[in-house]
Design a protein around this nucleic acid. Sequence first.
DNA 1: TGGCCGATATGCT
DNA 2: GCATATCGGCCAA
Length: 187
Amino acid sequence: MATLGPRFFARNTLEVARDLLGCRLELGGCAGVIVETEAYRDDAASHWVTRPNTARIMGESHGLVYIYSIYGMHRCLNFTSDAERPGAVLLRALEPVSGLDLMRERRGVKDDRALLSGPGKLVQALAVPDDAQAQPVTEVFRLERPRRRPSIVTGPRIGISKATELPWRFGIAGSRWLSRPFPKTTG
DNA sequence: TGGCCGATATGCT
DNA sequence: GCATATCGGCCAA
């Protein structure tokens, strides 16, 4: 199965966010299928606007790892995107596939639904290292396309107070591994 | 089962 | 000094 290169990430951020759904992401023996993402471009909620200094990588690259810390104790994982404009895709939830015992140990939870069902959770479960920052995605992770394109639902992004009208959250329809359910019907 | 709230540190004004 | 792309525990129902 083909791994994803720079050309995949060079496209429109909304397309990249949708096409990451269903992809298998692996790091250090732990793997999951991406079931939820969010797109950030140059909107009011984007770090391109709110953290212009540290998020400069959003405008200067595509296909690189962008990690940020939030609320003190949490870190979140993004892949930069779009060769033409600032953009990044936030990984919000994965379906656990392998390395379950290691991830349970790192997360300290019994319910497997809590392993990877949130942006901070998946970084902890996969033990994404700090030195992955600004590295090419495919040098840090193994990332494979799905055989079939999953059906997708959309909704407003989570945890933001600005640009809440943009439906730039994407998820695999019917997945039980989402960070939160999607508000309404399909998308 | 769902809502509320505190923890905790970083980036930017 | 303040807001924040979060998480998990606690409490009421």
